[in-house]
Nucleic acid binder design. Structure first.
Lengths: 244, 244
DNA sequence: ATGCAGAAATTGGTTGGACCATTGGACCAC
DNA sequence: GTGGTCCAATGGTCCAACCAATTTCTGCAT
């Protein structure tokens, strides 16, 4: 028996229905992020549902960062919504510890390599020019400040993700990038963090320009490897200093 | 249950406080994923808050995938919790169209290969035995039903992700797995969807057991390639049938 | 008219109590 | 055993208040 031929039946799903209705409302009214949506009391009345149910639904959206509630003021849209959104709640144990950061780097290694390869396959001449532009900006920032600039560096990588043609790359890595940012604000003592990764940005670009997916993948892996190395050195230093 | 591990809470920001108290409780009682936590009514009474507040807090945890509620049964822990967790809710504009599914497959290809390789590096003998167990179950289900069973198949892959030592693999792919499930509910006419991927489960296992990361990566890539192929065939059929 | 302090209305947050729907176990007849 | 029936426990929903933060309105002093 194919067990897919007997899917579980769906009997009640009030708050899900509320969210679905709300998606429809937002689209019908063409609400933009920042605008206020109806009060809980009005939603409850219009949807013929108790205010509690409305609140449970909105709590879910708030947890997903789609909406922001301000007591006494109202509930405001925080991001665009679409009928079939894919929710991906990621939870990391421990904020700044070495292990969590290594985990994010393992994910980034996988995605960065794939994105670079796809990018090399699909980049149009205009795309290549755009990536080159970001590369130049980054390299100049590096020279004038004699150090990696996380801002310009990030712009370069974003351009690569975008050209890969798959928006998921940018969105997933962007979420983890925030985590890394916190880490960079509190440097672990590795003064030249990211220094070693610098040359690989150009080699990645060159492979993309040459339409060499395998080469781009290899260079991306080398880049991540340098970051992992920096991280390990930082962790070693930290361990040392904490023994004082 | 130690009654002192659930002291009443005091401050405003009730539901946040409830979650904090709940984290303490889970740690104090050393609750493992799968175990049941106190009923909403008991939590409300012990924490001296209303049941609605407890529910809002649990709704947030449910949205983060930390907890699962089953009406008539109870609320069950779904993942380990720690005081300083970092939540990263990521919502992607997805869809059921061919392009979106190909995008998720590109992500899965990158992560599946990396996870298989890491798994081959890190698996302990016990881990390998566990993966073999899942493989046997899946293979038997395949033979008795003469077709891929998405349930047992998924269990096998989950075991690999888990052994990789990086919980992010499982979390990210699990979210996308749901998207694929939606897709399977509306089959595109490819009757033996996933059939071709069957043999690669065993080859992946063999590479892991042999501690061969590169081999495991290669076999994982082959597996995803078969799924991509199935998807393309389904899309072609759909296009044909929509021309009637 | 203008400015501003205080009252009033609005809105999300919380409470307590009630009832419904599902689950799972106990018990029973066959 | 198998299949029913009942029942207590539990999450899901509802209602009607009240609390707390915010916004808006009002009216008085200038």
């Amino acid at each position: 028996m194919d067990q897919n031929s007997l899917p579980p039946i769906q009997t009640t799903a009030r708050d899900d229905a509320v969210l679905k209705a709300l998606v429809g409302f937002v689209r019908a009214e063409a609400l933009q992020p920042g605008e206020r949506l109806p009060t809980e009391r009005i939603l409850a009345e219009r949807l013929k549902v108790s205010r509690n149910t409305v609140r449970e639904a909105l709590t879910r959206w708030e947890g997903l960062g789609l909406v922001e509630r301000r007591q006494g003021s109202g509930t405001y849209l925080k991001a665009a919504v679409s009928p079939d959104m894919l929710h991906m709640p990621l939870t990391l144990a421990g904020g700044n510890d070495f292990t969590s950061l290594m985990h994010t780097l393992e994910i980034r290694r996988a995605l960065e390599a794939e994105a670079a390869a796809l990018c090399a396959e699909r980049a149009s001449p205009a795309d290549i020019a755009e990536i080159k532009r970001k590369l130049d900006i980054m390299e100049q920032a590096f020279r004038t400040r004699d150090g990696m600039s996380s801002e310009e560096d990030w712009e370069f990588h974003q351009a690569v993700y975008r050209v890969s043609g798959n928006p998921l790359f940018e969105q997933i890595i962007a979420a983890m990038h925030e985590l890394f940012h916190r880490f960079w604000e509190h440097p672990l003592g590795v003064r030249d963090f990211g220094h070693a990764s610098f040359p690989y940005h150009r080699t990645i670009y060159e492979c993309i320009a040459a339409r060499d997916p395998q080469g781009a993948r290899a260079e991306a892996l080398k880049l991540i490897a340098t970051v992992e190395d920096d991280l390990k050195r930082g962790a070693a230093k930290l361990k040392l200093s904490s023994q004082t």
